[in-house]
Structure formats: structure tokens, C-alpha cells
């Protein structure tokens, strides 16, 4: 038994806090049903359409199986934000920090619980989505992607990682802004609104910026195809991870300075 409070003791507490809230369970159920359910539905629709047209379209088997991830991004962003903003909204942050005053370790323990939970759930669900999509595609005789192909394996397995990184962006925003509505608003603007606005700009302006946007980076991580303006999947992962680490680190600096 250790001689003082530690990252381990705080992580254990954060895990109890996470699993003892019904809202955590509901969020996970929403996440799984959106990803798997919408993935299956979209694959079904596109595969059927493709089959009806007799194959004169291009078909990206992974893009349709993992289509649910687009919606999942917002669920994990909100989940990440709420980990912090929930503490502020209920003022339980004061009770938490009175019990565990080492603030950096407190944040890291929350990050550990969020990352581990979403990595396990995320990976499980992208592979399930992949297999369901594969079955649908096979039944319509449309092109399928095999996991024995390294690129396919990477695209699918990065799906869970993508969600973890986006949840950390949400978490970082929650840590900095402290209010659920503000954190979610910024998250949606950055992920959804900003790319649309950038697309409206002349492409010589928009495109160089667009490739650095989290939405494009996360998409780049899970795509089999790649256009000239997008970074490669590994670079996308690294850049997005740097954003997440940067934002959370900045949040930790402020968190250590501010009153609880």
C-alpha cells in the first residue's frame, strides 16, 4: 500500500465515478448504436444502390461500414467535455479536489479512464461495424475490403483511436471552458462548421488550412482512399494526437492556476 495518495488511487476513484453514473452507460449505448447501427444502415443503402446501378459507381467498402463514426465523433466529444464540465456544473469539483488536491494527477486520472474506456469500446465497435458491413456487402456482391490487407486493417483499427483523440479534444475544451454548452459549441464549430466555411472559400485559400482541421485529420485516419490535400493516415494520427495533448496540457496549466 502506498504512503500517500497517488495517480493509481485517483484513477480508481475516477473509474468508480464513471461507472456509477447512468449517463455514462447511456452515452456508451448511444455511441455503440450510432456507430454500428448507422454503419450497417448506410452500408445497406449504398450497397443496394450500387448493386441496382450495376456497379457503374465507385464504391468504398470501408467508408460505408465506418460511416457511423462521423456521428460518433460528436458523441465522444460531448462525453469528453462532460467529464470536466459535469464537475463544474454540480460543483462537485470542490469535493473532488478537497479529497485529491494534486491537480495534474487528478486530470491525468480522468484522461486515463476516458482513454481506456473509449479505446476498448471504440475498437470493439469499429471491428463489429466492419464485419457487419462486410456481410452486407458480400450479400449484394459489391466490392469488399479484407482485413488481411494492411491498409484496410489500419483504416479500421484507427477508427477507435480517432474517437479517443476527439474525446480528448472535447475533454480539453471542457477543462478550459468549464461549461458544457460552451465546450460543445466550440467542438461543433471546429469539427463541423469551420470545414464547411473553409470549403466555401476559394480552394487555394481553404485547402491548405482544411488539411489541418481535426475533421479532415480524423477522416484521413480511417480512409482507404486519399486525395492530394490530405495528410497520410499516420501523419493525421500524429497531428491530431498533438492537438489533443496540446489542448489538454494547456488545460492543465490553467487548471493548476485557477480557483476551483
Amino acid at each position: 500500500m502506498s504512503s500517500s495518495i497517488s495517480l493509481a488511487s485517483s484513477t480508481k476513484a475516477e473509474w468508480i465515478k464513471f461507472r456509477s453514473l447512468r449517463s455514462s452507460i447511456y452515452s456508451l449505448i448511444t455511441l455503440i448504436s450510432l456507430t454500428v447501427g448507422l454503419g450497417a444502415l448506410i452500408t445497406f443503402a449504398i450497397a443496394k444502390h450500387y448493386a441496382d446501378r450495376g456497379g457503374d459507381l465507385t464504391y468504398d467498402p470501408i467508408a460505408s461500414s465506418l460511416a457511423g463514426l462521423f456521428f460518433a465523433q460528436f458523441v465522444v466529444g460531448v462525453m469528453g467535455a462532460i467529464v470536466m464540465t459535469g464537475e463544474y456544473a454540480t460543483t462537485s469539483i470542490r469535493t473532488s479536489l478537497a479529497a485529491f488536491p494534486r491537480r495534474t494527477e487528478f486530470i491525468i486520472s480522468k484522461v486515463v479512464v476516458l482513454v481506456v474506456t473509449l479505446l476498448i469500446v471504440g475498437e470493439a465497435m469499429v471491428f463489429v461495424s466492419y464485419f457487419i458491413g462486410h456481410m452486407i456487402e458480400a450479400s449484394y456482391n459489391v466490392p469488399t475490403a479484407s482485413l488481411s490487407n494492411a491498409a484496410t486493417w489500419r483504416a479500421v483499427s484507427f477508427g477507435g483511436v480517432e474517437l479517443v483523440l476527439l474525446s480528448l479534444l472535447g475533454f480539453g475544451l471542457g477543462l478550459l471552458l468549464r461549461r458544457t454548452a460552451a465546450a460543445i459549441a466550440v467542438f461543433v464549430v471546429v469539427l463541423l462548421v469551420a470545414p464547411i466555411l473553409l470549403n466555401i472559400l476559394p480552394s487555394s485559400w481553404g485547402e491548405p488550412i482544411l488539411r489541418w482541421m481535426p475533421s479532415n485529420l480524423s477522416q484521413g485516419m480511417i480512409s482507404l482512399t486519399r486525395d492530394a490535400h490530405t495528410f497520410g493516415p499516420w501523419n493525421c494520427l500524429i497531428i491530431l494526437a498533438l492537438y489533443a495533448i496540446g489542448l489538454v496540457s494547456l488545460g492543465i496549466v490553467f487548471f493548476n492556476r485557477r480557483d476551483a
Binding site: I5, S9, S10, A13, I16, T90, T91, R94, F100
Partner: peptide
């Protein structure tokens, strides 16, 4: 006890205390 309401309303009393207990072994 600085504020009796400084806890998450969705958690049971026991789970609230269990999480606090865990922080300090």
C-alpha cells in the same frame, strides 16, 4: 463539508462515498 450539494446528483450516496474513499485508500 463546504457545500452539501457539491456532489453529482445522479450518483448514489454509497458510490459517491466509495469514490471519495478510493482517492485516499
Amino acid at each position: 463539508l463546504i457545500d452539501a450539494k457539491a456532489l453529482h446528483p445522479g450518483r448514489s450516496a454509497r458510490n459517491h462515498l466509495l469514490s471519495l474513499a478510493a482517492t485516499n485508500n
